[in-house]
Computed example of a mutant assay.
Amino acid sequence: MTETTRNVQPVIASVGKEGSGELVSSRYAVRIGDVDVVLISDGVLPLPTSTMSTNVSEADRNAWFDDRFLQRDMFDWALNVALVRSGDRLILVDSGVGDGFEYFSRAGRSVMRLETAGIDLGAITDIVITHMHMDHVGGLNVDGVKAKLRPDVRIHVAAAEVEFWKNPDFSQTVMPEAVPPALRKAAAKFVQLYSENIVQFDKTVEVAAGVTARVTGGHTPGHCVVDVASKGEKLTFVGDAIFEVGFEQPDWQNGFEHEPEIATQVRIALLDEAAETGSLLAAAHVAFPSVGHIARNGDVYRFVPVQWDY
């Protein structure tokens, strides 16, 4: 063993031990006018690559993954949530997957990372759920989390979403066999735990000054996005409306979309909106921190990540 190797190994091993105990950054902050937004990585979800493009040939799908030096069978979906501070309101957007799914053991970090960052869960005044899939409500279902939240915390969920999960339709989805039962269970548990806190809305709701949730449908019938706008600046957290393949291949359908045709229309509309306005976009399943601009290239789009601001 060389002297260099002996010196490097302890240094690398100790990086991140203080505080979070993590080797990589898991949160990224951006200011939109007077509103603070922090993207937080919940981890990654390993899923079959076929779920990223259910309406295209295997050859076309393989070409996309090969071009990015990614394996063809499994793909690590990023999973991000957001924390927004506007005035005296502290708003959590989605909560991650939680701890109830052993095949998603590399995610479920959101609550821990909030607490590591010094965020008291009891300081959260509002929660927006983009939709009730388990990787968005699961963090709230973890034992002990409800007790740490304010008793009067407001959880904003589209009325169409709440209604859908009373009897969810999976007929147009293409998911691994174990997933639909897990989705049903997580959604039911969420409603049971937080029925007194859920505030339903129809099309849009202003959660705080400059922070609005609006229903898009598509991914699920009540799927919503969150717009943060202040002093002429804007960022939209699009939830599951856009995935990694969706920029270059916006018409590729995702196996988790309950209304795939509508989801395609929603995706293109959101991409057009961001390209035309120059506003920022962030997403649940785009590589962390997922913040960037959208450029249009003919009939497709290009994601332009922000320059990492140290």
Score class of each variant (00 low, 15 high):
residue 58 E to L: 05
residue 114 L to W: 10
residue 109 R to C: 13
residue 63 A to F: 13
residue 50 S to Q: 02
residue 119 I to C: 01
residue 98 G to A: 09
residue 108 G to Y: 04
residue 85 R to E: 14
residue 51 T to E: 02
residue 117 A to K: 00
residue 65 F to H: 01
residue 56 V to L: 02
residue 76 D to N: 13
residue 66 D to Q: 15
residue 91 I to N: 02
residue 69 F to L: 12
residue 111 V to I: 15
residue 82 A to L: 07
residue 74 M to Q: 05
residue 85 R to I: 11
residue 66 D to T: 15
residue 69 F to T: 11
residue 64 W to N: 00
residue 92 L to Y: 09
residue 115 E to V: 01
residue 114 L to C: 06
residue 113 R to E: 02
residue 51 T to Q: 06
residue 90 L to T: 14
residue 77 W to I: 01
residue 109 R to E: 14
residue 68 R to S: 13
residue 83 L to G: 08
residue 73 D to T: 12
residue 101 F to V: 15
residue 76 D to Y: 10
residue 121 L to R: 01
residue 60 D to R: 00
residue 68 R to G: 14
residue 90 L to K: 12
residue 85 R to T: 14
residue 91 I to D: 03
residue 85 R to V: 13
residue 109 R to K: 14
residue 89 R to V: 04
residue 108 G to C: 05
residue 99 D to W: 05
residue 105 S to H: 09
residue 84 V to D: 11
residue 53 S to Q: 02
residue 86 S to D: 07
residue 70 L to C: 15
residue 50 S to N: 00
residue 109 R to G: 04
residue 61 R to I: 03
residue 83 L to S: 08
residue 65 F to M: 03
residue 81 V to N: 12
residue 102 E to V: 13
residue 54 T to Q: 06
residue 51 T to D: 02
residue 51 T to V: 15
residue 64 W to G: 00
residue 51 T to M: 08
residue 110 S to A: 14
residue 91 I to Q: 03
residue 87 G to T: 09
residue 98 G to N: 04
residue 122 G to L: 07
residue 102 E to T: 14
residue 51 T to A: 03
residue 61 R to F: 05
residue 101 F to S: 12
residue 117 A to M: 13
residue 122 G to Q: 08
residue 80 N to C: 06
residue 92 L to G: 01
residue 59 A to Y: 03
residue 70 L to R: 11
residue 82 A to W: 06
residue 99 D to G: 02
residue 84 V to M: 15
residue 52 M to S: 08
residue 74 M to C: 04
residue 78 A to F: 07
residue 83 L to N: 11
residue 93 V to C: 14
residue 98 G to H: 07
residue 107 A to C: 10
residue 119 I to Y: 00
residue 74 M to H: 03
residue 75 F to D: 00
residue 103 Y to L: 15
residue 93 V to G: 11
residue 87 G to Q: 13
residue 95 S to T: 10
residue 79 L to S: 14
residue 70 L to Y: 14
residue 82 A to E: 07
residue 69 F to V: 09
residue 90 L to R: 08
residue 103 Y to S: 13
residue 74 M to D: 05
residue 51 T to R: 01
residue 79 L to Y: 08
residue 56 V to M: 01
residue 67 D to T: 10
residue 88 D to G: 12
residue 119 I to F: 02
residue 107 A to M: 10
residue 71 Q to K: 10
residue 123 A to K: 06
residue 111 V to R: 05
residue 105 S to R: 06
residue 117 A to S: 09
residue 62 N to D: 11
residue 75 F to N: 00
residue 76 D to F: 13
residue 58 E to G: 03
residue 75 F to K: 00
residue 108 G to K: 04
residue 60 D to E: 04
residue 116 T to G: 08
residue 101 F to G: 07
residue 104 F to R: 09
residue 62 N to I: 06
residue 113 R to Q: 10
residue 80 N to E: 06
residue 102 E to D: 14
residue 66 D to S: 15
residue 58 E to T: 10
residue 50 S to K: 00
residue 90 L to N: 06
residue 55 N to F: 05
residue 76 D to I: 06
residue 56 V to I: 12
residue 72 R to P: 05
